[in-house]
Each structure stands twice: as C-alpha cells, then as structure tokens.
Simulated assay, not measured.
Amino acid sequence: MIAVLLLGLTVGVILALTGAGGGILAVPFLVFGVGLSMAEAGPIGLLAVGLAATLGAVMGLRNGIVRYKAALLTAGAGVVCSPLGLWLAQRTPNRPLTIMFAFLLMYVAFRALQKSRPTRVGAKPPGTRKPPPCVLDENRGKLNWTGPCAWALTASGVVAGVLSGLLGVGGGFVMVPALQRYTNLTTQSVLATSLTVIALVSLSGVVASSAAGHLQWAVALPFSIGAIIGMGGGRLIAARLPEPYLQKGFALLSALVAVALLVKALG
C-alpha cells in the first residue's frame, strides 16, 4: 500500500513538472513497481491521469480558456473509440503491448527533447505559415467551424481514444501537438482544452474497464491519491525550475524507462 502510494506520488510530481504528457510514465511505474501486466496497469494509469487532468480542466473552465465545443467533439470521438482499445488490450499478449509502449515512450522522449531546444534561427514566423483548419475568431472568441476543422479534431480524438484504451495513456502527447497544429489557439488554451479532452476520454475508459472487471481498485485508489498529492506538491516547485531543464530531464527519464521496458519484453 505504501509503495503504491509513493509510486503515485512520484507520477503526480512528474505530472506537475512536465504537464499532462508526464502521465505516460504511470503505466511503466506500475509494471516495474507493482509487477502488473500492461493490460492490468493501463486502467489504473488512466484513472490517475484522468483525475489529474480533471483538476486542470476545471481550472481552465473557470478561467474561460477551454474551447469546450472543440473539446466535446474530440473527446466524443475518443470516448467512442476507447472501448476498442480496451478490447484489443485484453486480447493482445503482454510482450507486444510492452514493446509498443516502449516505442511510444521513445517518441514522447524525442518530442520532449525537441521542446527543450530553443527556436531555430530562420524558422518561419507565425504570420508566414499556412492558416490551420481551425481558426479562432477574435471578435466572437470562438472557433470558425469548417469541414476540415471538424475532421482534424475528430481524427485526433480517435487516435487519443484508441491509445488510451490500448496502452492506458491519457493522450496528452497526441492532443497538445494536434491542437497546436490544427488550431491557432494560445498555448494556455491549447493546454486547458487538451486537459478537458484527456479527462473525458480517460475517465470514460476507467468506467468501461471497471464495468468489465479489469480495474484493480486496491491498487488504483492509493496510486491515484498519491498522484493527486504529488501533483499539488509538484506545482509549488514547478514555477521555480526552468522549463527546458524539466523537458530534458523528462526526455532522459522517458528514454531510460523505454529501454527498460524493451529489455523486460525481449529478455
């Protein structure tokens, strides 16, 4: 019980320091720390990440920076597809799931390392880039809805939903880049909207997994409590640390965990 609580605490601190994408480490921590299989750890990781994302989403809604229609459309697609991921996870052997997760974690590490680097000299300024499919109307404060905009957000939700059910990840590493690419929202609005999507998709996956009897509450509750406490404590120190160093540290930790997962799966 204490060990599980401490693992959750560690994940919560990582969430606070690196954002919602840090929750991807919840599953490997449960695999190595508790000895669960990928399919068993996935729903528990979803619960912890979903609760943490819910707190962030509520704060974003309070500040009026969540684009709730975009979040509902994207999350709706994710909620519909999440059970498919859960179904596949329960029928896929542990070794292939572990290898898939390791490669996904390496991708997340690569993205975090890219994010830690300064903007390249000679990169195109925002004004010279092609407008994204979802453009915010400054006068109305709402997105201009078009077919390409709806399709881009729906496709992003499908990917996030399947991966959340299959591997127990919240989908922050999918939603944040997708919203940055397909919309012209501010960074704060992108993060708040993505947290709303993650909360809805993750918690729907938790409900489906619990209904199917695949969620181990004896592990899930202390792990989630630890994650919430850790997130609260981590926020106190997050603002004092330079973000590039946080991202580099997260990239290094993610890469090491990915290698450990590969060794475990192939050994």
Results as ranks from 00 to 15, higher is better:
Ile229Lys: 06
Ala57Met: 08
Leu84Lys: 10
Ser224Cys: 11
Val259Thr: 07
Gly12Tyr: 03
Pro222Asn: 11
Lys115Ala: 14
Tyr107Phe: 15
Gly232Trp: 04
Leu7Tyr: 06
Ser37Tyr: 03
Gly8Val: 06
Leu185Met: 13
Ser156Cys: 12
Arg181Lys: 12
Ala150Asn: 03
Lys124Ile: 09
Ala178Asp: 01
Gly56Met: 10
Leu72Ile: 12
Val257Pro: 00
Ala109Thr: 05
Ala192Val: 09
Leu256Asn: 10
Leu253Ile: 14
Arg67Phe: 15
Val49Arg: 02
Thr119Gly: 13
Met175Leu: 13
Arg235Val: 06
Pro242Ser: 15
Leu185Asp: 03
Val206Glu: 00
Asn184Lys: 07
Leu136Gly: 10
Gln114Thr: 07
Val66Arg: 00
Thr54Ser: 14
Val79Tyr: 02
Ile44Asp: 02
Val34Phe: 10
Asn63Ala: 15
Asp137Gln: 11
Ala227Cys: 12
Arg62Gly: 05
Leu51Phe: 15
Tyr245Gln: 15
Arg95Cys: 10
Leu36Asn: 07
Gly205Pro: 07
Pro28His: 00
Ala41Leu: 07
Val257Asp: 00
Ala53Tyr: 09
Ser204Phe: 03
Arg181Met: 10
Ile2Leu: 14
Ser204Asn: 04
Arg117Trp: 09
Tyr107Trp: 14
Pro93Thr: 05
Pro132Lys: 01
Val135Tyr: 06
Ser189His: 02
Ala39Glu: 12
Pro28Ser: 06
Leu61Asp: 02
Lys130Arg: 15
Leu30Val: 13
Gln90Thr: 10
Gly165Lys: 04
Glu40Trp: 04
Ser254His: 04
Leu256His: 10
Leu6Ala: 15
Ala199Lys: 05
Ala199Asp: 06
Pro118Cys: 09
Ala48Lys: 00
Pro133Met: 02
Leu73Asn: 07
Gln247Met: 05
His214Asp: 13
Leu97Ser: 00
Tyr68Arg: 14
Ala71Trp: 00
Gly33Ser: 08
Glu40Cys: 08
Thr119Cys: 12
Arg240Thr: 13
Pro132Asp: 07
Val80Asn: 02
Ser202Gln: 03
Pro244Asp: 02
Val135Ser: 13
Ala258Val: 01
Val219Gly: 13
Gly233Gln: 03
Ala112Tyr: 00
Leu25Ala: 07
Gly232Thr: 04
Met100Phe: 03
Leu203Cys: 03
Asn184Cys: 12
Arg91Ile: 01
Phe250Asn: 02
Gly249Ala: 12
Gly45Val: 02
Thr183Gln: 01
Ala160Ser: 10
Ile198Pro: 02
Val34Pro: 05
Ser116Thr: 01
Leu167Val: 00
Leu195Ser: 11
Gly157Leu: 02
Gly171Met: 01
Ser164Asn: 05
Pro242Lys: 09
Leu72Met: 13
Leu86Asp: 03
Ala251Glu: 03
Leu104Phe: 15
